[in-house]
Every structure is written in C-alpha cells, then in structure tokens.
Design a binder for these strands. Structure first.
Lengths: 254, 254
DNA sequence: AATAATCTTGCATAAACCCGCAAAAACAAA
DNA sequence: TTTGTTTTTGCGGGTTTATGCAAGATTATT
C-alpha cells in the first residue's frame, strides 16, 4: 500500500482521503500531508475540492465526515422487518430445558426480545447487552462469559473466555453471520472474533446461523466454520426461495 | 491504534459536548476541561459558541440542555446532580496506569461517563453496562468478569465470578453503597451481592465508596465490610460538612 | 463579609489559512 | 520524440484562527 502512495494522482489522493474519513470520521491536513507526501497546501486544496463536492466537511485543521452534520444518530435498526421475521423463526427452535449459547448483534437482540417470559432454559452468552435482556426473564438462568470487552463488536473476547467456552457444552448455538457463502461457509473480518466464534461452535451440538438475505453469498478473509458444520440457516426468506437452494445441500434452511 | 481523541478539532469537541449535554442535561466546564484535555478557557469559548448557535444554554459553571427548562423528560436518574458531583470527585482518584475494579449502579455510570477518553488504565468490572460504556474509551483495557446475571442488581454474581476475583489484585475498588453507617460500615440486602462485594474488596488495595448523602447513616441486614476497611468516602457534600464528621475517624472523606 | 470558583478581557504564540506566482508535471498534438 | 498548452504543485509572505495564560471583575457559597 505504502509503495504507490508516493506520486499519487489527484484523484487517487481524493480516494485515499475519503477512505480515511470513512474509517476515522476525521482527517488532519498535517498528517495527510505526511502520509501522502505532498505539501499541506495541496492537501488543503484537495479537502477544499472534496468539501465543495459535498463529500466531506472542511474544518480548520482538517476535515470531518459528513455524518457530523447529522448529530442525531439514527438508533434505527437496519432491516428490522427482516430481522424480526428471522427472530420469530429462531425462537421456535428453543425448547424448555435446553441449554443455549448466543452471540451478539441486532438480529440476536430481536430474537431475545421475543423469548416468552414463561420459557425455562439455560443461556450462555458472550454479549453483555444480550445477557441483560435475557436476565429480565425470571425463569431463565443467564450466564455471561466474561473477558476483554471489544469495542467494535461489543462482545467479550480473549483467552480466558475461550478457556471457559471449552468447559461448557450446550444444545444450541446461535450465531449471527457477518458473511456467509455456500462454499466458504461462515467468515469474519476480525481475527479475535473468529477465535471466539470457533470456540462457541466447538461447545455446541447444533449450530444455528441467523442472517438477513442480503449477506448471503458474501465472504470475508477469515473462516469461522465450514458450511457442513451449520445445522440450521435462518433468513427472512421462505425456505423454498431459490436464493437458498445452494445452501440446502449442507444445512436445513428455515 | 492511533488516538484521534487527544487533539480534537473544534467541531469534534462541539459534537462531544452536545452528546454529553443530551446525556446528562448538564455539563460543567471543569469536567469538560478534563475530559477533552483542553483549558477551561477553550471549553468556555466552545460553550459560548454553541450557546450562540442556540444549541445549548450557557450558565455559570457550565451549560444546560435547552430542553432542560421544559421538564419534559426529567428525573430519569434520581438525584443526578448529586451523582454527577460524586462522579467528578471519583474520577480524580483514577490515575494513568492504574488497575481499577468497579461495581454497577447509576452513580458508577455517571463516573464512567466522565472518564476522559485520553485515560490509559486497566478496568475490571462485574457490570455489563459499565463494561460497555468503558469500552468506548480506546485506551482502556476493559475486562468484564462473567458469571450468572442477576436481574435486580444487573451485575454478574456466582461462584465462578468469586473465584475469578480471587485471582486478581487491583489498585482501586469503587463500590456504590446501598447503605452505609459510621459504625456498621457498608451493608446490603442481597446475600449473593454481599459475597461478590466482599470478594471485590479482598481483591483491592484501596477501597472507595460512592454514595449520595441520603444513604448515610442507614443500614441493612448483611455486612459487606467494616468502616475501617473503607479508604475514601465520596459524597456530594463538602468534606467539611458535619454530617460526615462521624466517618472521618475511619476514612478519608472527599 | 470573606472566600472560592468562575468569568471577562487582553495579549502572545503557534498553527493553519489564503493568495499570487513560478516551476514542474501531465497532457495533447505535431 | 518534440513542442505547446493546461493542470497541478510548492513556496513566500501576510492574514486569520485557535488556544492558553494572566490579572482583575463577577458571581456563588458559607
């Protein structure tokens, strides 16, 4: 990457700057000048042009992502309709007396919200938020597996957690999918999250993957598990939908 | 990870301040100065600009949310004023590089929210919510101690957690008080919570108790620790207040 | 009234900015 | 390639902005 940073064209610099802003929500003229190996004036001109095109917000000292203009952060869940349909199907798999292990994510939260207060079961989870929501159901026994808290995924990770996971055995494991593909299986971006998910899978008899259809047929760098290991795949689509046919060889589609 | 936290741009500070105001309904120039790592003058100028833009209401010592005067959504947290004052004092005890153990509760949450993003320290906590809030600070290492999740206290409890606590040693332990008395010390209602708090105290060199003055001179059934074991007592009162004199024999009152 | 905290004002400094210009680079056509 | 045209870039020098500090005024608190 660093190699073609020297002697970049204006367009390339613009692309680079936009990428940086999307990544950090902010750039400094001074550091860009060093990163791109051009003068600060040039950077300023670049920022000015991007700002004029409405791509970024220019401020004294650098520039900010446009999202700073809409300070009211949207707490709306993306594709909630779909996620609720998934949640409805998922809850149906949980029977009285079962031991269940769950991950984090908005889909999982929708599922947990649908769990009736009358359900009697044992839950393990790596997600603080999910744990708190589960704990509101009086008949559930809720166990939160501790560890280092990861900011981006909002789950607990780390060695200790993996060691703890190796000591439990559950009936059902619910995982959300960052990306799933009928050949590459479940994949993830963050190495540390992969470690945790692998351990979760090892600790469970049956594996259930929840995902919105949008994420079907996509893959990331690191593999969490092969498609054969997945027992149930739950999406908002009808099981007969042809987008799911490729998955049916390996797993039950719900 | 580079921290774009120190050396914030003006716009970023403004966004941060607005977030804080929406969260607490009120900000103090003094606290903001610490959190943002800039001089009070700069904070004052920021507040002035935001006030001029009509975003907030500037008052002596800080600023208020505009919606605060119309008591539409008030009293979400009981005695928030007092708790913020306590929080402000408590944050002062945390120094760079320390290892800190915290409990749950609204006072603790106020404290955690005031922790500057620039602080470098290691935190252990038994509270899922506190853990998530802490995790937003990039320079902190946050460890959530897992276990059964107790609905009423919203903390993790149980044998496993106590065993884990026995394996760590921290500089500072922050406990909230359900009841505190100059002779009976710290007391609690729930037996299982007592077990956890006792273990937390055993794991720490210095013990800090946070409580609103209202809870002074009250006691419950089960003792958590003797008054002598408490190193610092933090309330919203001035240290010189005569309500605190009985406690001064045993502990430092802040 | 006394004390402490906070505010205002003015000033100093460093960083960031703007403007114009000339060199350099990219581009297009001969 | 060479030549001419256009775009892009870096730089000098003057301007503006951001920030912290100090001293005195103002406002809370006791």
């Amino acid at each position: 990457m660093e190699s073609h940073i020297a002697n970049m064209l204006k367009k390339e610099r613009h692309a680079y700057i936009l990428k940086q802003i999307n990544l950090h929500n902010k750039v400094l003229s001074s550091s860009l000048s060093i990163q791109l190996q051009v003068s600060e004036d040039t950077v300023r001109r670049d920022l000015f042009e991007l700002a004029e095109a409405g791509e970024i917000i220019k401020v004294h000292g650098g520039a900010l992502s446009r999202s700073y203009h809409f300070p009211a952060q949207q707490s709306v869940v993306y594709a909630r309709e779909a996620k609720m349909e998934i949640a409805r199907k998922a809850v149906g798999l949980i029977k009285k007396g079962m031991t269940v292990l769950t991950e984090a994510g908005t889909t999982m939260m929708e599922m947990v919200r649908l769990i009736p207060a009358s359900l009697e079961a044992t839950f393990f989870t790596v997600s603080p938020l999910i744990a708190l929501e589960l704990a509101e159901r009086p008949l559930l026994s809720v166990n939160l597996l501790g560890g280092q808290v990861d900011m981006s995924s909002q789950i607990c990770i780390g060695e200790k957690m993996i060691r703890e996971l190796s000591q439990i055995q559950v009936d059902l494991c619910f995982l959300g999918a960052n990306a799933i593909d009928s050949r590459q299986g479940l994949t993830e971006i963050d190495w540390r999250v992969v470690q945790v998910k692998k351990s979760m899978i090892d600790a469970s008899s049956r594996l259930v993957v929840l995902t919105i259809a949008e994420k079907l047929n996509s893959a990331h760098r690191m593999q969490v598990c092969k498609p054969q290991r997945i027992d149930h795949l739950i999406t908002e689509l009808k099981p007969a939908d042809k987008k799911l046919s490729a998955y049916k060889k390996h797993m039950t589609v719900i």
